[in-house]
């Protein structure tokens, strides 16, 4: 038997029904860096609060999007989930169980990441065959030359690089951006993952081929039941492609919910700002952006709600206390004082 072409051939997991395949609980990452001002003993005192207390759930056959600007902590989150960064605190549960020690190899097989830049993530001196055969062998998905070759052909067909024979011996520079990203996706699939973490998988690609790659990921979700994390700054593509959406700002989750619900009825002022700023030819009225300024420094993030210095609706309490996550609809959560029952009662 050659390497399986679908995830259904994987050993059935013993996870109880209803448990998400991958769950992040209170995931936090602080980077210790050299302070730009201090010297000597104190120079490592600065901390970048990159990601704070993020909860996220990935389910089989669903795409969860994480949307945010640069510096919002979305890539840090993806990298923690890929176990490339060790979280400062918080838990990652795979099939409902925490990952420890020797389970890490198994984790890496089941959770694979696709990086943003297919021009940088493929080794320019190695062929497509090499890139795909490495994970196949490392994760014991195929043995022997014939088996590996058959598995490579199957992988290339899965990412719609057909006929596979035309691609196996190509070097990265002989491929277009879209083809490279497909090879990068095939490489992730080679390990036989159940979860795919896609960190801005289309932002480096030409507009006309972005949808092709997104539709391919959508097919992997629908046909093979992969759980996909889609990290992006493009809220329109997240609306198009994702089932659920988490909006991050300055390292914190500000809003999450079903993606249509979030984009059609945004509950957090930051989500509104993102939607207003996105190019949209169908917009009826001229757009006036109320919030101004730019994302804050994460070394000294604003007190209370991190969005309050830019928020057009900021109240005194916003700069004093971190807002709690309030439910504003079914499965729709916003971290904003405007939705707090306590504040509403007072007004």
């Amino acid at each position: 038997m050659t390497a399986s072409t679908s995830t259904s051939a994987l050993p059935a997991s013993d996870r109880p029904a209803g448990t998400p395949i991958l769950e992040a609980r209170g995931l936090t990452k602080h980077f210790r860096i050299r302070s730009p001002r201090e010297r000597g003993k104190n120079r490592f005192r600065a901390t970048v609060y990159a990601c704070e207390d993020v909860n996220l759930v990935l389910e089989t056959g669903r795409v969860a999007a994480v949307v945010g600007e640069s510096g919002s902590g979305k890539t840090t989150l993806a990298r923690m989930l890929a176990q490339l960064y060790k979280p400062t605190s918080g838990q990652i549960l795979l099939d409902g169980k925490p990952v420890k020690g020797r389970k890490l190899h198994e984790y890496r097989r089941k959770v694979q990441i696709v990086f943003q830049d297919p021009f940088a993530s493929l080794n320019p001196v190695h062929s497509v065959r090499y890139h795909l055969s490495r994970p196949l062998r490392i994760h014991h998905r195929a043995r022997g030359k014939a088996e590996v070759n058959a598995a490579i052909d199957a992988l290339l067909s899965r990412v719609k690089l057909e006929p596979p024979r035309n691609f196996t011996d190509k070097l990265p520079h002989e491929l277009s951006g879209g083809q490279r990203q497909r090879v990068a996706i095939a490489r992730s699939l080679a390990a036989g993952p159940t979860v795919l973490l896609a960190d801005e998988p289309v932002s480096m690609l030409d507009v006309s081929i972005r949808l092709g790659v997104l539709n391919l990921l959508g097919e992997l979700r629908d046909v093979e039941g992969l759980a996909i994390l889609y990290v992006t700054h493009d809220i329109a593509s997240a609306r198009y492609f994702a089932d659920t959406m988490t909006v991050m700002y300055a390292g914190r989750v500000v809003e999450s919910g079903p993606s249509l619900e979030v984009t059609d009825h945004p509950a957090h002022p930051y989500t509104q700002l993102l939607l207003d700023a996105a190019p949209d030819p169908e917009r009826a009225a001229p757009q006036v952006i109320e919030a101004r300024g730019s994302a804050p420094s994460l070394i000294a993030p604003p007190s209370g709600c991190r969005f309050h210095p830019r928020c057009p609706h900021a109240m005194p309490i916003c700069s004093e206390q971190q807002p709690q996550q309030e439910s504003v609809g079914e499965g729709h959560i916003a971290a904003c004082w405007l939705h707090s029952a306590e504040v509403q009662a007072r007004n």
């Binding site: 640069s70 994302a295 420094s297 000294a300």
Partner: peptide, 13 residues
């Protein structure tokens, strides 16, 4: 402005 002093993260995540 109202942002706390310190180097702003400039571009790129």
């Amino acid at each position: 402005g109202p942002m706390p002093a310190g180097p702003e993260p400039s571009g790129g995540s």
